[in-house]
Simulated scan of single mutants.
Amino acid sequence: MWPDRRLLKLIKTELPIVQAPMAGVMDADLVIAAAQGGALGSLPCAMLSVEMAREQVNIIRQRVSAPVNMNFVCHKSVDADPKREAGWKQRLAPYYKELGLDPAAPVNAANRAPFDAAMCELVEELKPEVVSFHFGLPDQALMKRVKAAGSVVISSATTVKEAIWLEENGADAIIAQGAEAGGHRGMFLTENISEQPGTFALVPQVVDAVRVPVIAAGGVADGRGIAAAFALGAAGVQIGTAYLRCPESRVIAPARTALAQARDDSTVITNVMTGRPARGVANRVMREVGPISADAPAFPHAATGLAPLKAAAEKLGKVDFTNLWAGQAVRLGREMPAADLTRALAGAALARLSQMAR
């Protein structure tokens, strides 16, 4: 029934839908619910310790017998720059004063660690069916170990050049992440966000450039978007924003309200929240300091200075300093259980594809 079944054969799910890993706003519950609906459930592991990641995967395994995707990041670590950090704190000082916080108080460093030997050992132990990466791929030694564990390897590309590089370096499938997509840009061969193509331009060009299955991401939040992705040559879709308002997500109440009220023009690409370009619903600090600021420390250190502000504002019911990662199709999100949403999306897509085939 699906025009291209290569992804289904590769990841062995019922549906060619990948639930996007969204660090900080989800855990095993959303993975389980998406898997129960027939999608590939994805667990974001970049902000988890080895012990926490093991615990989460074990919870998933106990509750559902379906393929699991463990997701990691592969950025090159950059040490915190004290001078840059001090400048960032100075830029944020008015907010600290407003909230009655001491900018000199110690703060835990941001905890987005790149994939390393310890996490690779966990992959070898747990043997997830799929391992996905953002910001490229790990070094070849780690890649060989992941493959030897039996895991399918997927990674994100934001340009054709990145897609070709991923295929040449061992990716079994490629997520073509259009500029519409929520969350961090997966870019790793470029830093120029002004040149990032949209999904409709990117997907067919990636399909033409590589032999492996292509997964469309960005602006896909209903059956029409899924059908369009397949019409462009994709073998599957990755969906994140549409799941944010599901009851299984960990999105806090004020953020749910912001997402529900968001429009097609509510999201921007910013580096203010973490130091790396990412798309989200504009909040106060993104508007007043950014959305792009040269003052923001390198990823992930910008988040360190914002952490106390985020915590204090959230206690007041505000999301002025909270990541509201979401794509341009945020308005299409719905409040319904993730399993039901997954099946509804697939059903609507198949109906649309059937109409197109007549």
Rank of each mutant, 00 (worst) to 15 (best):
M1D: 12
W2G: 04
R6W: 01
I11F: 10
K12C: 11
T13K: 12
L15M: 04
V18T: 00
M26G: 01
M26P: 03
I32M: 14
A33P: 04
G37W: 11
A39L: 05
G41W: 10
S42C: 05
M47G: 01
M47S: 12
E51L: 11
R63Y: 11
V64S: 13
M70P: 05
N71Y: 07
N71D: 06
N71C: 06
F72P: 03
K76S: 14
S77Y: 14
V78S: 09
A86K: 13
Y96F: 13
E98A: 14
L101K: 11
D102S: 13
A104Y: 04
V107E: 08
N108H: 12
A110Y: 10
N111R: 14
E124W: 07
H134D: 02
H134P: 00
S155T: 00
A157W: 05
A157Y: 05
T159C: 08
E162Y: 09
E167Q: 15
N169M: 08
A171Q: 00
I175K: 05
A176Q: 06
G178A: 00
A179Q: 10
E180K: 07
M187D: 11
T190F: 07
E191Q: 15
A201L: 04
A201C: 04
V203I: 01
Q205C: 02
V207E: 06
P213M: 05
P213L: 06
I215G: 02
A216L: 06
I226W: 12
I226V: 14
F230L: 03
A235K: 05
L244I: 09
L244Y: 09
R245G: 02
R245V: 10
P247Y: 03
P247T: 02
S249L: 01
I252F: 01
P254L: 02
R256M: 08
Q261P: 11
R263D: 12
T267F: 02
T267K: 01
V268H: 08
M273P: 02
N283R: 08
E288Q: 09
V289P: 02
V289S: 01
I292E: 12
A296N: 00
A298S: 12
P308I: 10
K310F: 07
A312V: 05
A312I: 11
L316F: 13
D320M: 03
D320I: 03
F321M: 03
F321W: 03
N323K: 02
R331M: 11
R331L: 12
G333F: 01
G333V: 07
E335Q: 10
A346E: 03
G347L: 06
A349H: 07
L350C: 01
A351N: 10
A351V: 01
M356V: 11
A357M: 14
